[in-house]
């Protein structure tokens, strides 16, 4: 339950970053989709399954240590390869309208119209799937 709330907080801060990065439209969409839809779905399931009483158990010690080490290693590796890159010289342009609705919309419905259409197949498949899986049979 708390993790869901924390997650929502996290999503809002990411949305804040989007705004800072001149992706205003995306920030709004992000809040609507994630905080508004996905997290509500999560909350709904948590309530439905009545999970909030159940304490979240942890793995055995060995597994936790291994997880910590491998996760840490992953971060280290990412860090190392990022540090060697020279992208630090890029500086954010002062004014930009690429994140505005009209700009993004043009891209989406011109260049990326096929992926847009194809994602309808994905959604359709997911809808059928969710219904098939979650529906209670008589």
């Amino acid at each position: 339950m708390y993790s869901v709330i924390a997650m929502i907080v996290c999503f809002f801060s990411i949305a804040g970053h989007y705004v800072l990065l001149n992706a205003q439209f995306l920030a709004i969409v992000h809040i609507i989709v994630y905080a508004g839809a996905i997290m509500v779905l999560f909350l709904f399931v948590v309530m439905l399954l009545n999970l909030n009483q159940e304490p979240d158990k942890s793995h055995g010690k060995l597994l936790r240590v291994a997880a910590a080490i491998s996760g840490g290693m992953l971060f280290l590796v990412l860090l190392l390869s990022l540090n060697t890159s020279e992208t630090g010289t890029f500086v954010l342009p002062e004014k930009s309208d690429i994140g505005m609705v009209q700009h993004v919309g043009k891209k989406l419905f011109n260049e990326y119209v096929l992926p847009f259409e194809i994602s309808s197949v994905l959604l359709l498949s997911a809808i059928i799937g969710s219904v098939v899986l979650a529906k209670k049979e008589a």
Binding site: L63, A66, A67, S70, G71, M73, L74, V77, L80, S81
Partner: peptide, 15 residues
């Protein structure tokens, strides 16, 4: 976990 380890090992080897 095994997957992450595999990834890390591959990265370490290659990078």
């Amino acid at each position: 976990l095994a997957m992450v380890c595999g990834i890390v090992i591959l990265f370490v080897i290659r990078l």
